[in-house]
Design a protein around this nucleic acid. Structure first.
Lengths: 129, 129
DNA sequence: GTAATATTTCGATATATGGCGAATTATCGA
DNA sequence: TCGATAATTCGCCATATATCGAAATATTAC
């Protein structure tokens, strides 16, 4: 019951659900998800921690980046079932379609172009001194 | 997506999930659920409103009592699927077993004995004057 | 080694949530 | 009609949550 409630709370937030759905067919690094959701990196990081603790996703460090991907068969039943259900239910949503489209575009551009954009204002300020 | 998030939030609370599961095989009046959950009537009422607005349950007035039961095929897909999944997932939980046992006992006693118990302290105070 | 980048942690804030008791509404029974 | 009962609504409080920006940590690049 604790696991179940934990899992339900984790996906009962629109942005976290969007993350889970975005990770359906691929793993993504944090900065890619920041670009997708258009939220502060710290916010996305916290969302990822919630999904992680609930057992939905897991991190994998690759150099400077941290990629997150869905947990496979090792995940608790509750998580596996809920993930499958979300895939079915949310695929009909407009938001999901938008995100998938946007993701496809983001994945075409190089990560060097992608990441760092959300520090652009700060970098610009510094370099202009 | 809105419907889905709404539904997820509704059942992502242990007491509301307990209510939904208690309504699996029967309809219950509010005072019966108050007895089951051992929460203040106002609290239970609020939980019921949340489940109602999310589309999981519906009210039916019968004289002095208001019975709640699960919504049937009219319920949105999200709600139907989630309800079915909760039935499967939560049936393994200790809390659910406890509740079902307790419910069986509560349903044996007459409702007149059951309801009013949680006003007992107040009634006792008044009658002792 | 220093600067830039990627991510997390920390601290703050605003809002949402779950709980209660008191007051309100509606219905039943004597 | 009046008192008791069932349920909801309202007002309050404590805690949880979502968000941000700043600071800390780690890694790569020059």
């Amino acid at each position: 019951m604790r696991t179940l409630i934990h899992a339900l709370k984790a996906i009962a937030d629109p942005n976290r659900l969007r993350i889970l759905l975005a990770l359906r067919d691929r793993s993504l690094c944090v900065c890619q998800m920041v670009a997708l959701l258009e939220l502060a990196p710290s916010t996305v990081s916290k969302h990822l921690a919630v999904l992680d603790h609930a057992g939905f996703i897991q991190a994998q460090k690759e150099g400077r980046w941290i990629f997150y991907r869905r947990v496979g068969r090792e995940a608790p039943v509750e998580v596996r079932r809920l993930t499958a259900l979300m895939d079915r239910l949310a695929s009909a949503s407009l938001q999901t379609a938008k995100d998938q489209k946007r993701l496809a575009k983001l994945l075409q551009s190089k990560r060097e172009d992608l990441c760092g954009r959300y520090y652009a204002s700060k970098a610009a300020t510094v370099s202009s001194l």
